[in-house]
């Protein structure tokens, strides 16, 4: 298990296609109504999100809420961006295909950036429209 994790970390370091890796923490609104403070200490898995951005600015985002997505990041200025794409929307009312959009900002040093992002999704299952969202902050590590 340790070797597998070590190999994965080495792969992240060496593959040039994976340019940025972001770890976010922040509360998600999952369709139950009302605001949700971030957990203190931040140990709830639902508060976390991982984002992997390639050199071509294609991004994979993984979180429990709003879900699992693949899309394109469009840079607006140095640091500010809009992301659009689709994937699997996850909500208290179910799981289903959908679209997402995100607005974010990176304030960067040499290899680490502070990141804040608002991500929302719109999806549907057989009975419901779902629209979860999350406002999160975190750190972006630039490998490229």
């Amino acid at each position: 298990m340790g070797r597998a994790i070590g190999s994965l970390i080495l792969l992240i370091f060496t593959l040039p296609a994976f340019a940025d890796f972001t770890l976010h923490v922040g509360p998600a609104s999952s369709g139950g109504g009302g605001p949700n403070p971030v957990s203190i200490p931040p140990i709830q898995v639902i508060d976390y999100e991982f984002i992997w951005v390639t050199e071509e600015k294609r991004e994979w985002s993984l979180s429990i809420v709003p879900g699992l997505f693949y899309g394109q990041r469009f840079m607006l200025s140095e640091g500010a961006y809009v992301s659009l794409g689709g994937g699997l929307v996850i909500d208290l009312n179910g799981v289903g295909p959908g679209l997402y959009s995100a607005f974010g900002y990176d304030a960067c040093g040499s290899s680490l950036c502070f990141n804040v992002e608002f991500r929302k999704a719109l999806g549907a299952n057989f009975r419901h429209l779902m629209s979860p969202y999350a406002l999160r902050v975190g750190v972006t590590w630039r490998t490229g």
């Binding site: 403070p37 719109l122 902050v137």
Partner: peptide, 23 residues
């Protein structure tokens, strides 16, 4: 248009990233 108006849930709620939204 698909827009979200994001509001802080009070001063302390805003610090803890608690929000309300009108989509």
């Amino acid at each position: 248009a698909w827009e979200s108006a994001l509001y802080p849930a009070g001063l302390t709620g805003g610090i803890l990233l608690a929000t309300g939204r009108k989509q």
